[in-house]
Simulated assay, not measured.
Amino acid sequence: MAAAKPDSELVVETSHLTKIYQNRQIALNDATLSIEPGSVLGLLGPNGAGKTTFLRLILGLHRPTAGWAKVFNKTMTPNAADLRRRIGYIPTNPQFPKGMTPITYLDYIARLFGMPRDERKPRLASLIRAVDLLPHSGESIAHFTPGQTARLAVAASLINEPDLLIWDEPTHGLDIEARRSMLELIKTLAAEKTLILSSHNLTDVDEVCNHAAVLNKGQLIFFGSLQELKGRIRKNHYELDLDGDQKSITKALGVLKSMKEVTQAVLRQRRLDLKLTDDVPNTAILAQIFQVLFDNKVTLICLRSLGMQTEQAYLDLMEQEESRGFTRLVQLADAA
């Protein structure tokens, strides 16, 4: 990742951020990162990794045990209401008063922000249209679908025109259509705002994020661009969908297996799983592979780089971290 810009240009900065609950549970340990304007950060990690704790510290909902978090170059604390006014937050599974309608709820939130009546009305109308709730604006929230509830949460998080959006699992529980609408909205907002998105859906992260932070057992094990995360893991691992008669494909497979640059070649039906060495440029090896397929009259239908998938990169990273943890335990046992 490029060197951090001057402090004045950072949206979020943390230094050795740590949170210990009840003097025994380390929820977050020594997390240091910086988020520049225009970033769309995917916050990744398994359940219990510390993601929600990290977000709550950024929001000033919890006090850190050690270290600090700055938002817009000011230290975030539970009393920093001026900073929270510049943040739009959506928790996981947002809940709303069942007796209200979208209009009454958003009007209530706008009044909490001190927005005068002449500003509230057009702002509410604009947001309700933007999140496609106009046909339901007078209906009780109690009867909303998960997709409608998610759209209302988005409207509420945008009502104060924030510069930073922090959304915790924004596509959780949504059907395909609602999820697609949410992702398109995130792309639109990313053109003018900075976003932090906590998500278990790595396909979503791959589509909308440009940076990633990976937490595991309270430790920040990766922070950088999404390309860095994807590029460092299995960069020479491919899947090839092939077409041709089986005899020709089998003959080509035999040639590929004999190449010293090919470390694995496994054929399943007409899909070839191929791993290559990392010590030579992949373009040179792939050119040779394409020539072998051509010589054997095998057509390449599709080529996928598994190393360029966020999900695979994330899983490999977690696997490496678990292996390091096991190694540390063995070392401790040997030293005892």
Rank of each mutant, 00 (worst) to 15 (best):
L286D: 14
E13P: 09
T283R: 03
C302S: 11
F113R: 06
S258A: 15
L17G: 04
G138F: 04
Y238N: 10
M318F: 02
T32L: 05
Q246C: 03
T188M: 08
N160V: 11
A155D: 06
I166H: 02
S39K: 04
T299D: 11
D241I: 08
G38C: 07
L59G: 04
E207P: 06
A336K: 04
R86C: 09
G138D: 08
L229S: 07
L17R: 03
L174I: 02
A142D: 15
R179I: 05
T263A: 03
G218P: 01
R268T: 12
L61Q: 07
D107N: 12
K257D: 12
S137A: 13
R270L: 08
E239N: 12
L274E: 00
L28H: 04
G38V: 11
A252P: 03
T171Q: 01
T92F: 00
L240H: 01
E9S: 09
A27I: 03
T310F: 01
I196D: 02
P46N: 04
L267E: 00
F113E: 10
R151M: 02
I87R: 10
L106F: 02
I249H: 01
P6I: 05
L197E: 00
T203W: 06
Y238T: 13
L202G: 01
S225T: 14
D118W: 00
K98I: 09
Q95N: 13
T327E: 11
V11W: 03
V292W: 06
L332R: 06
V298H: 11
E319Q: 14
G88E: 04
D30G: 05
K230T: 15
P146C: 04
L274F: 13
N296Q: 06
V255T: 14
P162I: 08
E13D: 02
A156W: 14
F222A: 12
R324K: 14
M182T: 11
P64D: 11
P122E: 05
I221V: 10
T250W: 11
W167F: 06
A284P: 04
N282T: 14
M259P: 03
Q309M: 12
T92G: 15
L286C: 09
